[in-house]
Structure formats: C-alpha cells, structure tokens
C-alpha cells in the first residue's frame, strides 16, 4: 500500500572524519507497492545500510528517501511516525526481546503507537496468527522459547505495528532449513494477504528465487541491477557478474540443457522445474 523511492542516496560511515567510507553511493531505487522485493548482495554490499535508511534509523548523507512521495526526513522530529509505517526487522531480532511474556513483547510496538488495549489485543492476535505462534506460547517468557520461536516472536513484534512497508534483514539467518522455509512461507503469505510492500534482505539466491517478485542486486554500495525475478534469472551471466551463485535448480536446468534436454534455463523454482520435467517425461517435447 505504500511505495518507497530513493533519490540519489549516498551514505557515509564516519562522515567528517578521515576514515569516512561510503556504504552506499548514488542509489536511486523505486520499491513499488503490493509485492515482495528481494535485496541481495555480498557482505559489505550495503544491504543492511539500505534497510536502515528506509525507515530513518540512518539518515542519508546525501539524497532523499521518499515514502509515498514525501521525504521521510521532512520533519526530523516526526521520524517516529515513519518508523511505525515502515517496519524494520533487524538481523537476529530475538536479541531485542525483553518483556515478561511473549504477548507483552509483541505489544511493545503498538503500545508505543498509543493504540487502545482492544486494538493492541487484536493486532497482537493477528501478528501471532501470521507468524504461527499459538495462545500457549504467547503466555510464556520469551527467554524460555526455542530459537525459532523467539525469532517468530520478534518478527511478530514488528508485524503487530501493522506497517505499510515491512523490511526484514535476513529473517531466516541461523535457522534450520525447516524453520527457514516456514518463516519465509509465512511472511510471503502475510504479504499477499495484506497486500503489503515487503522487502526481504538476504544473501541467498535460493530463497529469493522462490519468495521474491522483484530482485535488487547490490554490489559495492550501488544497485547492480533491479528486475523482476524472472528477468534476473533469464540472464545468468549478469548474476554471475554480480558475484552471486545461481539457485541449484537453475544450475541443474542449465546442465540438462547443455546435454541437449529441451528445458527452460530460466527456471528458478523447484515447483516450475517439476512441472517442466514431468511434462517432458510424459512425452511432450516442446520446451517448457
């Protein structure tokens, strides 16, 4: 429901000191509404800096960040209101839990927004539903929960603010494959159902290929390319140039194509590959 635009944004760490280093330089981006946008890049490519610029935790050294056409720093005193509209889940967010029960921790954001108790209860309920936390878990201390549950409580804490834009910095980092899959699937479902703008930051091409509509590839603090997911994977050379690995399934398809099997090398999800290969096995010979 909201669009974020960056206009020629640069960010320097340690500006005004001799050690100033550019984390982002001259980034212009439009992150459109009602879709999941994956931001991918190597360590040090500026992904996390970008995330913190989008909700005003960091202030651009140069350039502007626009939310629905308005500069978020137009009135620096009201930056708090922007942070409610643009929710940011940091890396390893479980370190921010502090309340006595998971429920109260999730309610921290909405309470800061000044919502009424009834509204808070409804928001917490909804956030818990989207992250798959049941009633019983909500009454327990967040410190008694497992790693994956803590992560979900922390994410629910941001979802409960019902932000228009949701940014998640490596939401699945450090989780086991099943937990990773679950959290990403749930987030994707949330984004679709609520028609939010969701920005997923990750270094895993595998996850992006499955969960993102659009992909922004970052390299050395600049935008290397910004395209639809299909568009990005249709050009494997460009992906390699950015120093990123193609998803395993795409590499498998390319290997098959090299052996003369007529498959589409742009396939990047297991589901699409399965459909394509079973069609081939059933005797269809047209490339899928």
């Amino acid at each position: 429901m909201a669009e974020i635009r960056l206009e020629d944004v640069s960010y320097l760490y340690g500006a005004d000191t001799p050690f100033a280093t550019a984390a982002l330089s001259h980034v212009s981006l439009t992150l459109g509404e009602d879709r999941t946008i994956g931001v991918i890049g190597h360590t040090g490519s500026g992904k996390s800096t970008l995330a913190q610029l989008l909700n005003g935790i960091l202030r651009p050294t140069r350039g502007r960040v626009l939310l629905d056409g308005k500069d978020i720093f137009a009135d620096p005193k009201k930056i708090g209101a922007i942070r409610f509209r643009v929710g940011l889940v940091f890396q390893y967010p479980e370190y921010q839990l502090f309340e006595e029960t998971a429920r109260r921790d999730i309610a921290f954001g909405p309470r800061n927004m000044g919502k009424s108790d009834d509204e808070i209860a409804a928001l917490v309920e909804e956030a818990a539903r989207f992250t798959g936390l049941d009633e019983k878990l909500l009454e327990r201390s967040p410190f008694e929960l497992s790693g994956g549950q803590k992560r979900r409580v922390a994410i629910a804490g941001v979802l409960a603010m019902d932000p228009e834009v949701l940014i998640l910095d490596e939401p699945a980092a450090g989780l086991d494959p099943a937990g990773k899959q679950e959290i990403l699937t749930r987030l994707r479902a949330y984004q679709r159902e609520k028609k939010k703008t969701m920005i997923l930051i990750s270094h895993s091409m595998e996850d992006m290929a499955v969960f993102a509509d659009e992909i922004v590839v970052m390299k050395h603090g600049t935008v290397f390319c910004h395209d639809t997911t299909d568009g990005v994977f249709s050009d494997p050379e460009r992906v390699r140039e950015a120093g990123l690995e193609l998803p395993q399934i795409t590499r498998l398809m390319m290997a098959l194509a090299a052996k003369g099997v007529p498959v589409d090398t742009g396939i990047h999800t297991v589901k699409a590959a399965k459909a394509c290969l079973s069609a081939l096995l059933k005797g269809g010979d047209a490339p899928c």
Binding site: R83, G109, V158
Partner: peptide, 16 residues
C-alpha cells in the same frame, strides 16, 4: 556494538 544494535531495534519499534 551490541547496545547500539538493541537501541536501533527498539527505535524501530517506536521506543522513545
């Protein structure tokens, strides 16, 4: 470093 991280995370949840 850790304190800074936590401050930012709580700021993102509207802590004042």
């Amino acid at each position: 470093e850790e304190t800074e991280k936590i401050i930012n995370a709580q700021k993102a949840r509207g802590a004042d």
